[in-house]
């Protein structure tokens, strides 16, 4: 699993907003091109991005292994045709090139995940999206990170308890609905306690926002993002 790791790389020192901009610029141009030359150029950019964030390509590929299954499947699906000649290589190749650019988009996003702590992402959200929606989205994202391990433990308990009560012999619908009821009611009990605690700590619409400031490094990064985005029109 890919996650944030403290490090001193250039990617770690960039503002989360410039990293988001680069990802969006990269995706925009990748979604606009499937030519071989464009793919070669995009590969170079993706490799540089991974290098800058010190993420190994293998590790990133492994993190997206389920996506890879579908990305390999797509060209096969495209190539198969009903009736002679049964295999249409040209269709398959078109789809393979399309799948490959998706892989590049995934790899580039791995660099953000590795180099950006939640705190910075929350700050970026709250400083980019104004008003109440930005405040809720920022705090909400922090809450999701916080509650993942808690709910993971809950779900493990639920599954163990179900297995202990011969749950494996029950119907699939029964099992899914039991997980649903127990999972949701436990999660909501936690949410209700969380809501009290947030109110007790004056949860407000207008808090002091987390510190975030652009450094000299971020201007070239934004320029790269703009160039990438504009290259979508080439």
């Amino acid at each position: 699993m890919l996650s944030y790791e403290p490090d001193g790389t250039l990617a770690h020192r960039l503002d989360p907003r410039s990293k988001l901009a680069i990802q969006i610029g990269f995706a925009a141009t990748a979604l606009a091109h499937t030519g071989l030359r464009a793919l070669a150029a995009l590969s170079v950019v993706a490799a540089v991005v991974l290098l800058v964030a010190r993420v190994s390509v293998l590790e990133a590929l492994y993190a997206y292994r389920y996506a890879l299954v579908f990305l390999t499947l797509a060209p096969l699906l495209a190539a198969v045709t009903f009736g002679s000649p049964w295999i249409d290589l040209e269709d398959g190749a078109t789809s393979a090139r399309a799948s490959y650019r998706v892989l590049l988009i995934l790899l580039v996003s791995a660099a953000y995940v590795r180099s950006t702590p939640v705190r910075a992402s929350r700050a970026a959200i709250q400083r980019t999206i104004p008003g109440k929606p930005g405040q809720l989205l920022g705090i909400g994202v922090a809450l999701v990170f916080r509650f993942l391990p808690v709910l993971q433990a809950d779900l493990r308990t639920i599954r163990d308890a179900m297995a202990a009560r011969l749950g494996d012999e029950r119907s699939a619908v029964d099992r899914a609905s039991t997980i649903g009821i127990l999972g949701l009611s436990r999660a909501f009990d936690r949410a209700d306690r969380l809501a009290l605690a947030m109110q007790a700590r004056c949860f407000a619409w207008n808090p002091t926002l987390p510190a975030l400031s652009l450094s000299r490094l971020d201007y070239p990064a934004f320029a790269v993002a703009v160039v990438l985005a504009l290259s979508a029109f080439l």
């Binding site: 939640v118 705190r119 922090a142 916080r146 808690v150 306690r193 969380l194 605690a197 700590r201």
Partner: peptide, 10 residues
């Protein structure tokens, strides 16, 4: 249940 009273992971 302090576990449910935190709003951040750190």
């Amino acid at each position: 249940h302090p576990r449910d009273q935190f709003v951040a992971a750190t």
